[in-house]
Amino acid sequence: MDRSAREALQRGMTGLADGDRSSFDAVFAALWPLLRRFAERALLDPAAGEDAAQSALVDVFSRAAEFDPDRDAVSWALGIAAHECRTVRKKRARRREDLGAAPESSSGSATPEDAVIDADLQAAAASVLGALRPADAETLLVAARGQREKSSLFRKRLERALSRFRKEWRARHGEE
């Protein structure tokens, strides 16, 4: 943002703080792209950045009457946006923690060690599945979802896919 735009924003925010509603459009037009760019860069995610910028923008306007004209309007608005981005990051981290804790709570008696072993096995199976031909991997996934067809052709395809899966597993891990 160049100096003249910054000064125009400062004048606009000062006007809004004083109750001058004619400054609203100019302040909105100047702040929205500024806050969106800032939030997208801070969160490294355009969608989350846009959501955070929208919340920050609404917050800026709800507090516009409290704006102190002696403060820099850009820094003040970015401070509100930074707070919003921190809140989004905290929410994200909490969600990740919740997802990480889900297998333990669902198994009831599972210990943290069991959860780690389960996660390792799932990762190993996914890795072996990824090494198979796409058609074999798809057949195994269809069977695992319980959507297997009752034809002899599908049964043979499944047997072949399972055989290749075992072979690949043995090659990687040495045992079934």
């Binding site: 929208q54 609404v58 516009a64």
Partner: peptide, 14 residues
């Protein structure tokens, strides 16, 4: 919609 929300927020602040 964002403009309308921002406007409402401003009027609530007033």
């Amino acid at each position: 919609e964002l403009y309308a929300r921002a406007r409402r927020a401003y009027e609530l602040g007033r």
